[in-house]
Design a protein around this nucleic acid. Structure first.
Length: 485
RNA sequence: GGUCCCGUCGUUCAACCGGUUAGGACAACGGCCUUUCACGCCGUCAACACGGGUUCGAAUCCCGUCGUGAUCACCA
């Protein structure tokens, strides 16, 4: 009677492909394959405000790059589609209606403004947080009337007010949670889109997901999901909450782009091989056994079991990633290595892009190498003769640290990566930080090129790409703080 | 702040259901190899968060404390 194993990765297309997505995808993939099951990709694009058009494609491309391909998904189709939540609107609305009809959910006419004020009051009072149930006991007549009159509403799940919820997590055992601290979650937003909670449960059920393998940040809301399964009368999947990847800072906070490169594109552009990155990700929480650290996904599938997964939040350690990548480099034939090099920056197209930037500056053909070296590596050293120029006269390390950090974030926010847009963004940063243009541009130049003399700044930034520019600006921000003003 | 997860070297992963000089790897340091560097090899440094129990015996089981983290949205 055991059903075929089906797992899924459900990324939200709101930004660059995230290393955490790859991490969770890996374990879903491996577990499914271990049991001869299916691995599914579902795009959770129900947040129309944060969705970014280029994101979905980039996520799929990156996952394919890592070899974590799916059996069913928006691009390959499958029997349980569509696999994009934005294309499943009516399904969610129908299911919300079912809950409404059964009295398991209710319309809520509270405005975002009122809820915001409520939240603020609760914060001040340091009391219980959460919805105050104002609309929970509206009569059905009133509820129907107001809905008919066109008053905007959301649909909330009716949670029990007492007792406790019990979740059994394969890795963590039983987790109890009192219902008193769980409020009535919004299931359907006033724009008609579902929230994660509704869409996730409905889709997991309809797509016959047997094991939900997701990050530990979901543990607190799992009782709501369990309640939803109960309300629908469905069997819940097996819950497995993986630890969260962490920053290498003092506190080991959840991995974040402010402190660590989190985009898969960064690692690709930094010359990390997909096989090495996947292997490294596997090392985060999983132990192969016998002290073996280098293994392929296929080998991991052979030996995989959740008993071999540990729960401490693993720190994403670039040093070890680079070490293991070196291992994979040495395994490659010269031919294969050459192909990998051409695939990143050592190719004609990239040379052609750089050449116009330096043509006026070179006196012989070989000067090209000197002038463009910084376009071919990842991290620069600022402990150099020009390094002190990160700090203009009369500016403090703190000021410039903040300015460079802001520059990094401004670059990250850019949607269209053009020379003009880059310049505009940096000028805005200078203005916001009350810096003269040159007080920002020289440090930025040194940050991205390592030198005070470089090809044109914005063109160089454009050619380097967002990932390395961000990385260098952040590194420079750290370095400048160590300088004396 | 409430709730919940977690807690072994700086980092990562071990040490089957209690009995080990607590092990491997990355990093660091030292050495060998090498014209140099790297690779490789050898070695050194380094951890059971704390306090109570249970037990002949606790990193391992229980309780408490502390600490980190996550979460408390019409985001996922």
């Amino acid at each position: 009677m055991t059903k075929p194993v089906r797992t899924r990765i459900a990324p939200s297309p709101t930004g660059d492909p995230h290393v955490g997505t790859a991490y969770i995808a890996l374990f879903n993939y491996v577990f499914a394959k271990k049991h001869g099951g299916s691995f599914i990709l579902r795009i959770e694009d129900t947040d129309q405000a944060r969705a970014r058009s280029d994101s979905e494609g980039a996520i799929m491309k990156s996952l394919h790059w890592l070899g974590l391909s799916w059996d069913e998904g928006p691009d390959v189709g499958g029997p349980k589609g569509p696999y994009r939540q934005s294309e499943r609107q009516t399904i969610y609305q129908e299911h919300a209606q079912i809950l409404l009809d059964r009295g398991e959910a209710y319309r809520c006419f509270c405005t975002p403004e009122r809820l915001g004020i409520l939240r603020e009051e609760q914060r001040q009072a340091k009391g219980r947080m959460g919805y105050d149930y104002r609309c929970r006991d509206l009569s059905s007549q009133e509820s129907d009337r107001r809905a008919q009159e066109g008053e905007p509403f959301t649909i909330r799940l009716k949670m029990p007010k007492e007792g406790f919820s019990l979740m059994t997590d394969l890795l963590r055992g039983e987790v109890r949670r009192s219902y008193e601290e769980l409020d009535d979650q919004v299931l359907l937003k006033s724009d008609g889109f579902p929230t994660y909670h509704l869409a996730n449960v409905v889709d997991d059920h309809l797509m016959e997901i047997t094991h939900v393998i997701r990050a530990e940040e979901w543990i607190p809301s799992t009782p709501k999901h369990i309640r939803l399964y109960e309300a629908f009368g469905w069997e819940a999947p097996v819950w497995i909450h993986m630890p969260l990847l962490r920053n290498p800072d003092k506190n080991k906070s959840k991995i974040s782009k402010r402190k660590n490169p989190v985009s898969l594109l960064f690692y690709k552009e930094a010359g990390i091989l997909p096989s090495a990155l996947v292997n490294f990700l596997a090392l985060m929480g999983f132990s192969f056994g016998e002290d073996v650290e280098k293994f392929t996904v296929e080998q991991m599938i052979e030996v995989f079991s959740f008993e071999k997964v540990s729960l401490g939040g693993p720190v994403f350690d670039l040093d070890k990633l680079n070490w293991i990548n070196g291992l994979y480099m040495r395994d490659l034939s010269e031919e294969a290595l050459l192909a990998e090099m051409e695939a990143i920056w050592l190719n004609r197209a990239y040379f052609a892009k750089l050449l116009p930037l330096v043509q006026n500056r070179i006196k012989n053909l070989n000067d090209f190498i000197d002038q463009t070296a910084f376009f071919f590596n990842v991290e620069l050293s600022y402990d150099t003769p020009d390094g002190p120029l990160l700090l203009p006269k009369n500016r403090t390390p703190k000021e410039m640290g903040e300015a460079l950090t802001e520059a990094a974030e401004a670059m990250d926010r850019m949607e269209s990566w053009t020379i003009e847009a880059i310049e505009a963004a940096l000028r805005t940063v200078a203005e916001e930080k009350n810096l003269k243009v040159k007080e920002l541009f020289m440090p930025v130049r040194v940050a991205i090129s390592g030198k005070k003399a470089s090809p044109p700044l914005f063109e160089s930034i454009e050619a380097l790409g967002k990932e390395r520019v961000r990385f260098r600006l952040r590194k420079a921000a750290e370095y400048v703080k160590t300088l004396q003003s």
